[in-house]
């Protein structure tokens, strides 16, 4: 009996960690966009769903998940570029609310288009990595471990990009004060585009790796929205480290919570969020800057 519970716990923790991976990939873009452009980019959820659908389609056609992953990221790159140039860039200088409603509109349109193209029935995507590994005496699907590893790699890659490359330095400077970056002679609008595309591709990647966990459905972007919001709020908008930490928290709360009582999976992160906001109104790692 005790043995059984122990295994349940281990596998719940691993599941929670892989959920954290998905949340992190999805919210790091939200956080970056808010930090630099001061927008809340809800169309990230469309790119997330589109990524999942692309990997489904390519996987169904070629039987190769990894090719699907690549195709999904590339196609989202193109879509996001068009959206940013045509629509999003027009609200960068306006209050946050504008970007929220505007990108919500993009998201909604995206959902409609997905329904139009792929129909309403949810689609399954098979896990590309079958088999299990033993962790502390518990068999855990390899794919979950892969997702965790991928998220860790992306975290360090993003940190490297921001801290060690000149473009990342420019982005950090822009998060501090975009106006001054202009005065230095840097094309800030190009910087914005790069950041937006990076965010979108990461969101697409989140959709791709999440697809084998869930059924790919038109509403999947809407379903995950609340969790993504809780992650960015708990972590503090605009902070990568905060996003990572809070993705870890939310992942565990969701997965361990549902072990105790199923409805807790959706309520518990919200309670955690409220408690953290009462203690620290800008989230765990949100800076003073965010008081504005």
């Amino acid at each position: 009996m005790i043995q059984m519970n122990w295994q349940l716990l281990i596998s719940a923790i691993v599941l929670g960690l892989s959920m954290s991976g998905v949340y992190f990939l999805l919210t790091v873009g939200l956080s970056l966009c808010y930090g630099l452009m001061r927008i809340i980019s809800l169309d990230q959820f469309f790119y997330y769903a589109l990524g999942a659908y692309m990997v489904y389609t390519i996987n169904a056609m070629t039987g190769n998940f990894w090719l699907g992953m690549l195709g999904a990221m590339l196609s989202v790159l193109v879509v996001a570029f068009v959206v940013e140039r045509l629509i999003n860039k027009r609200v960068y200088s306006k209050p946050v609310m504008f970007s929220m409603i505007l990108t919500f509109g993009v998201n909604l349109m995206g959902v409609g288009l997905i329904k139009y193209v792929w129909g309403l029935t949810p689609k399954p995507v098979a896990s590309p990595l079958a088999g299990r590994v033993m962790i502390l005496g518990t068999g855990v699907p390899v794919y979950r471990v892969f997702v965790i590893a991928l998220a860790v790699v992306v975290y360090f890659a993003v940190q490297y990009f921001l801290n060690k490359t000149i473009l990342g330095t420019a982005i950090r400077a822009g998060i501090d004060d975009a106006e001054k970056v202009k005065a230095l002679g840097i094309n800030i609008s190009r910087l914005f585009t790069v950041t937006f595309l990076l965010s979108s591709v990461l969101s697409a990647l989140a959709g791709v790796i999440h697809a084998p966990f869930v059924m790919v459905s038109p509403e999947m972007g809407m379903t995950i929205t609340a969790f993504a919001f809780m992650v960015v709020i708990i972590g503090g908008l605009g902070s990568i480290k905060g996003t990572m930490v809070s993705a870890l928290i939310v992942g565990q709360v969701v997965s361990l919570g549902s072990l105790i009582w199923a409805p807790l999976a959706e309520m518990a992160p919200f309670l955690v969020m409220i408690i953290i906001l009462l203690l620290k109104p800008t989230g765990l790692y949100g800076s003073k800057l965010m008081y504005r």
């Binding site: 808010y34 809340i40 209050p95 946050v96 609310m97 929220m100 929205t225 609340a226 919001f229 809780m230 960015v232 709020i233 908008l237 409805p263 959706e266 309520m267 919200f270 969020m273 409220i274 906001l277 009462l278 109104p281 800008t282 989230g283 965010m290 008081y291 504005r292």
Partner: peptide, 29 residues
Amino acid sequence: SFMVRLNSSYFTLCNQAFCVVTFFLFQKA
């Protein structure tokens, strides 16, 4: 008394999260 303590960006996001939880309350809990 909880919501209005937040700054405007968080207010927006928290309200949406709250809405999801309310939906969940009425639908499932």
